[in-house]
Design a protein around this nucleic acid. Structure first.
Lengths: 246, 246
DNA sequence: AGCAACGTCCCTACACCGTAGACTTTAGGC
DNA sequence: GCCTAAAGTCTACGGTGTAGGGACGTTGCT
């Protein structure tokens, strides 16, 4: 009479009883973060979630900060930046929308995304968080931008993109169900004579279309960048023959 | 034989021995935050800094989160948004630079600035953090924008602005002294074949001119917004006679 | 088969955190 | 000089991250 829980030698892992791995730890952490927020993501709780002693986690992340870095890396790896044959503006636009959706899927990760790099010099950040930068630089180079112009474009673009995402996430927290009601309720609290415009905007705030707003902003920015920066490469997907060395 | 430390009855406050006040607490908190970062700003430490029992702080902030909110409010109150007689674009530009400088003066507050609102529905945020929004709405209204257009402009503008600030703060942490060296050092760590462009950009990254970068982005964005949105009010400081009620 | 070495994991312990609740001290009005 | 309310304090509790050391299973060598 074998106990039903741990009969197999190393079969189908009774309950998280497989060998841990960095990936397993990180994705459990992400799951917890998505489900219950940053405050819930403690070493002890995560250990419990994995059916392990909290201390075992330190085999896979040097400390909590590193674990959080790992999670942001994991999330960013969901973002595919693959060059295709479209104009650079369209590619950047697509990437922006992808990142926006990613952020909406993992809203609790966004604070980490924008906050962690503030305490780490660029060169020491997890590679996974630098990869998008490199890839966009390469995309722009392929579109004919010089290195420094690429950097300028990247900065304006990513800056706006992150700003938009923060903006959008700030505007609703509440369930889209009772959105209107709660929002109005909140706004109603504001002193009428000090915040007349904000209060008057309640309905407009209530039906915020993030994708459209992002798109418009991008249109302005990208066309502005296109007309300002590149000497010639405004459309074509590259002069095509500059794959220099190797 | 009086002890030299506490001779006066209630004279010149020997050492932080005055009656506390919310303002005193908050500005001590800000000081500590500026000097040693968010991690150092604990209730116990702040109490110690003020020469008081940590528990006394709870008279002036309901809990730590509220205290942090108070600090962001305090910082934002340093930002003066006073309408003047210039074109709206120029006013927004000035405000943007002011906010940028404010952020550079209090870099450790920036994470709070962008992060705290994510967990508070708009209407329940500290009034001090909503005031800039209201004031900018009013500035735009005075420039002839309709309420909804104002909102769109505000979103694009503030989104870009916050994005830029985050970007800029991320690019150097290190002392401007050994900036170059450290930066290169960091970058040198990156695998050469995976990050060729980023590594090549080291010198360009090293002399980043934040103000200029912000200004260019703003030019693009503001002129784009001007040409896209307002039906007529593209320059003039307002039709001038709409101070409706009171 | 036996054994040594090593990586994985758990246990214990410590210093520190936020804060609830009851207490003492202080300041001001009568 | 008392009374009262506010301001400040003390004690204590349950939580946190993580250092150090020991237990254990797995693996590779002989």
């Amino acid at each position: 009479m074998m106990s039903p829980s741990n009969d197999s030698r190393q079969d189908h892992v009774p309950r998280g009883r497989a060998r841990l791995s960095r990936e397993a730890v990180l994705s459990a952490a992400l799951e917890l973060l998505d489900a219950e927020g940053l405050e819930a993501l403690t070493m002890r709780r995560l250990g419990q979630e994995l059916g392990r002693d909290p201390m075992s986690l330190y085999r896979y992340a040097e400390n909590r900060a590193a674990l959080l870095d790992g999670v942001t890396e994991l999330v960013l790896s969901e973002l595919a930046i693959v060059p295709d044959d479209r104009v650079w503006q369209e590619q950047l636009r697509r990437i922006a929308h992808d990142l926006r959706l990613l952020a909406l899927r993992h809203p609790n990760v966004v604070p980490l995304l924008v906050t962690r790099p503030l305490s780490t010099p660029l060169g020491l950040r997890p590679l996974g968080t630098l990869r998008p930068l490199e890839q966009i630089l390469s995309l722009l180079a392929e579109a004919g931008f010089g290195p420094e112009d690429s950097l300028h474009v990247y900065r304006a673009y990513y800056g706006f993109l992150y700003g938009h995402i923060l903006n959008e996430l700030q505007e609703f927290i509440v369930d889209p169900e009772e959105n209107e009601a709660l929002l109005r309720l909140g706004l109603h609290r504001l002193p009428a004579k000090e915040f007349p415009r904000l209060r008057a905007l309640a309905p407009a705030l209530a039906d915020y279309d993030g994708a459209a707003e992002l798109d418009q902003g991008l249109s302005i920015l990208l066309s502005g960048l296109a007309s300002r920066l590149p000497p010639d490469a405004r459309k074509g997907p590259a002069p095509s023959r500059i794959d220099s060395s190797e």
